[in-house]
C-alpha cells in the first residue's frame, strides 16, 4: 500500500509542476490540455461513484456537464458574473435534474436504466439545440468568466489550473469518504448482491437515488468549470458520445477505484490529443487502442498500481 501512496503522491506533484514546467519550456498549451483533463477527471470521478461503486450504468452523465455549463452561461448572459452564485446554481441545478432523472430511472435495472438515462440526456441535448436565445445549435460565448470577488482570477490560466486541480482532489477525497461510510457500504452492497441487500433489511432505492444526485451535482461543477475553460457553451457538451467518453474514462481508469477515473481521463484525452496531432484519421487508431486496453487491463489502469484496482 505504501508504494501505491508514493506513486499517487508523485502524480499529484507532477500535476502541481505542470504550470512552471510549461512556462519554462514555453509550452502554455499543456496547461490548457491538462486543465481539460482535470475537468473531465472530476466528471469521471463523479460517474465512478454511481457506476463503479453503485453499479448504476448511467449512459447520460454528460447531461450534468451541460446543465452546469449552461447555468454559468445563462447567468452570464443576463449579466450575472458572480462565480460563487454561478457555481452554486450549477451544482444545485444539476442536483435537481439528477433528482428528477434518478427518481424515475433508479427504479429500473439493466438495459432500461441505460436507455432511460440516455433518453433524458438526449432530451436536454435537443433542448439546448432548440433554444435560440442561448445560441441554439451553435452555442454561445462566455464573454466574462466567473468572478470570485477578486479573490481568484480565472482569466489567469495558471491560477485557473490550480483551482481545477484543487477541486479534483477535493472531489476524490469526498468520494473516498462517501464510499467508505455507512451510506457507501449500502450502495456497494446493492451493487454486489441486491437480493441479499434487501433480505437483510435495506431498501436500496433511496440510497442509490441520493448517490445519483451527488454524482450529478459533482458533474455539474465540472460543467461550470468546462464553461470557463472553453469560454464557450454548446449543446455538444451533452452529446451522447460525450456520455460515452466519460463512461470510458471510468472503465479504462478502473471502476471502483479512487484514482482510476482521473487516470482514465488523463489517458483518454492525452492519447486523443497526441493521435489527433499526428493524423486526421486518429479515430481509426484510437478505437482499436480502446478495445485492447479494455481487454488487457481488466481492472483498469488503477489495477496496474501496486495494491490493485480497488479502494476502500
Amino acid at each position: 500500500m505504501r508504494a501505491r501512496t508514493l506513486i499517487l503522491a508523485a502524480c499529484v506533484l507532477l500535476l502541481l509542476a505542470v504550470p512552471p514546467l510549461a512556462t519554462v519550456f514555453n509550452q502554455p498549451y499543456y496547461i490548457d490540455l491538462l486543465r481539460r483533463v482535470l475537468i473531465f477527471g472530476i466528471a469521471a470521478v463523479s460517474l465512478n461513484l454511481i457506476l463503479g461503486y453503485g453499479g448504476l450504468v448511467s449512459f447520460g452523465h454528460a447531461a450534468y456537464l451541460g446543465v452546469g455549463a449552461y447555468s454559468v452561461g445563462i447567468l452570464a448572459f443576463y449579466g450575472i458574473h458572480n462565480g460563487w452564485l454561478q457555481w452554486a446554481v450549477a451544482i444545485v441545478a444539476s442536483a435537481l435534474v439528477a433528482l428528477l432523472i434518478g427518481a424515475i430511472s433508479v427504479r429500473t435495472r439493466g438495459i432500461y436504466f441505460i436507455m432511460i438515462t440516455l433518453a433524458f440526456t438526449q432530451m436536454l441535448y435537443y433542448l439546448g439545440v432548440s433554444v435560440e436565445e442561448f445560441g441554439g445549435d451553435d452555442g454561445m460565448r462566455l464573454k466574462v468568466k466567473s468572478q470570485f470577488s477578486g479573490l481568484v482570477d480565472l482569466g489567469d490560466p495558471v491560477t485557473y489550473y490550480y483551482v481545477v486541480l484543487a477541486l479534483l482532489l477535493a472531489c476524490m477525497y469526498l468520494v473516498h469518504r462517501l464510499v467508505n461510510s455507512r451510506f457507501g457500504r449500502v450502495i456497494r452492497a446493492a451493487k454486489s448482491n441486491e437480493a441479499r441487500t434487501r433480505a437483510i433489511g435495506f431498501s436500496p432505492y433511496p440510497y442509490q437515488l441520493v448517490a445519483f444526485v451527488i454524482a450529478g451535482a459533482m458533474c455539474g461543477l465540472a460543467g461550470a468549470l468546462l464553461a470557463n475553460h472553453t469560454a464557450y457553451i454548446t449543446p455538444a457538451f451533452m452529446d451522447w458520445t460525450r456520455s460515452g467518453e466519460i463512461m470510458f474514462m471510468v472503465i479504462l481508469g478502473g471502476m471502483g477505484s479512487i484514482p482510476g477515473p482521473a487516470l482514465g481521463a488523463f489517458a483518454l484525452l492525452i492519447v486523443e490529443d497526441q493521435l489527433a496531432g499526428w493524423t486526421q484519421h486518429w479515430q481509426v487508431i484510437f478505437g482499436p487502442l480502446l478495445v485492447l486496453s479494455v481487454l488487457f487491463f481488466k481492472r483498469g489502469l488503477a489495477g496496474l498500481l501496486p495494491g490493485g484496482g480497488k479502494d476502500g
Binding site: 462517501l178 455507512r182 440510497y207
Partner: peptide
C-alpha cells in the same frame, strides 16, 4: 464485512456519509 452489513441494516438509517464504517 458481510456480517457487519447485516448489523448495519438494523442499526437505524444509513444516511451517514462521512465516518468510515469499517472503523465503527
Amino acid at each position: 464485512d458481510n456480517v457487519a452489513l447485516a448489523v448495519q441494516a438494523h442499526a437505524g438509517h444509513s444516511f451517514r456519509f462521512w465516518r468510515a464504517a469499517r472503523e465503527e
